[in-house]
Amino acid sequence: MSRSSTRFDTKKVNSELVTLTYGALVAQMIKDLDNTDDVSKQLERLGYNMGVRLIEDFLAKTGTGRCLDLKDTADKIQTAFRMYLGVQPNVTNWSPAGDEFSFMLDNNPLTELVELPDDLKGLRYCNIICGVIRGALEMVQLDVQSWIVQDQLRGDTSTEVRVKFIRRLEDAMPAGED
């Protein structure tokens, strides 16, 4: 059983480890917080923390420069999906003004082996992805909103992650430093 693809130096891990670890965390949060909306919020925040750090890795590995426009940004996030989750979402549903778009995920390693019980249908299980996108873009001076529109876990055919551009952040000094 020598699978070169699982070798360590390729810096990949088995996706089931991630799936189940994430699932265990969500289950624990549901137990701790008792309120589905709070869990969704907390997952988003957790993703945000990850995104803030992940962008560094992304920039270092891809050596990518500034984005010219939001389409460019969308393409780069698409690349990031492939790099980090090993999936290739489609970028679609652009708003007429060109400030909103969606990623359509047909399969998603986070939701493999996952089933939401009926009383948790309100849970935004994949909110962590929205958080990662928001956190990562904030670090490159883009303020966005991101949310889940469709969710395979709730019976939709694919998972749709919506991203809305809010504004460009000016270079601001961290609070307390001038």
């Binding site: 891990v13 088995n14 996706s15 991630v18 990850m50 980090y84």
Partner: peptide
Amino acid sequence: GKGEVSLNCFALLFSEI
């Protein structure tokens, strides 16, 4: 079970955990 995810993802997720 041969799907793979970047180690960075797992490392950051575990750190959050």
